[in-house]
Design a binder for these strands. Structure first.
Lengths: 119, 119
DNA sequence: CGACTTCATCGATGTTTGTCAATATTCGGG
DNA sequence: CCCGAATATTGACAAACATCGATGAAGTCG
C-alpha cells in the first residue's frame, strides 16, 4: 500500500489560489525519483525492453551487449542500476549472468504515476 | 497510437537463449527517456504533485516556491523542464505565471510503461 | 593445474544536471 | 513615466553520471 496522503498544514494567505495542500512529501518524492531516474536513460530502457521481450522475461548479458552497441562494462553498469532500483534480478548460472524482470515492478511504477495525477 | 513494434531481424546464433527480438528501438527509447528524465527529480515530482492537487490543476509560481523550499530561479528552471517535456503548460495572467497540468500527459506515460513490460 | 570465457569492479574522463546570486524582462499602479 | 512586484534568463560551480579501457573474480573445460 503506497497511499499518497494529503498533508494538511495551516498556511498564511498567499497571493492567488487556496490550493489543496501538497500531495506527496519530500521523502516519497525521493523514492519515486530514484526509481524513475533508473529508467530515465535510453540504454536502460532498451535493456529492460529486451529483457522483457525475451522468453521467461530473462536474458544473459551476452545477449544484451550487441543490441545496445555499448561496451560490456557499460552494459553491466546499467544492469546494476536497474537491479538496485528493483526492476531486475540477477541469477548466475555457470559463467553466465541472467537478468530477469521483477514481476509487477514496472506496473507498480506505472500505477504510482496515475495516482499522482488523479489524486 | 504509440505501438511498440517488434523488430524482426535475422541474427546469428548467439550463446544462450533465442530471444524474441528487440521491442523498442533507439529512437523510441530516446523519446521515452526524455520524458522520464523530466519527472525523475524529487523537486519536479513535488511540483507536479502540488499543481495536480491545486484547484483546476493549476498553480502560480508564487505558490510553489515556499513548499519546495528552493530559490525562485531554481523553481522556474524546474517548471520550464516540466513544460518542455509536455507535462505542464504556462499561462501568464497579469504579473503571475500559472502552470497547469496537461490532461492525460502523466497517464500516457503511465500506459507506456505498462505496454513496455507486458509486450 | 592452466588457459579461456563471462561478467563485475576500478580509475579516469568528458558531459550533464541541480542550484544559487545577479541581472533582465514584463506588467500593473501611482 | 517611473517604481515595485513576479518571473525568466544568465553565468558559475560542484555533484552526479555515462562511458571506456584495464584489471580482477569466478566458473568451465581440456
Amino acid at each position: 500500500m503506497t497511499t499518497l496522503l494529503a498533508i494538511a498544514e495551516p498556511q498564511a494567505t498567499v497571493c492567488c489560489a487556496p490550493l489543496t495542500r501538497e500531495t506527496i512529501d519530500a521523502e516519497q518524492a525521493d523514492v519515486l525519483a530514484r526509481k524513475l531516474k533508473a529508467l530515465a536513460d535510453p540504454t536502460r530502457l532498451r535493456l529492460v525492453s529486451i529483457v522483457a521481450a525475451s522468453e521467461g522475461e530473462e536474458a544473459c548479458v551476452c545477449d544484451l551487449i550487441e543490441p545496445v552497441g555499448l561496451s560490456q562494462p557499460t552494459v553491466s553498469h546499467h544492469l546494476k542500476i536497474l537491479m538496485e532500483a528493483g526492476f531486475l534480478t540477477r541469477s548466475k548460472r555457470g559463467t553466465w549472468a541472467y537478468y530477469k524482470l521483477v514481476p509487477g515492478a514496472l506496473d507498480e511504477l506505472s500505477q504510482l504515476l496515475e495516482v499522482t495525477s488523479q489524486r
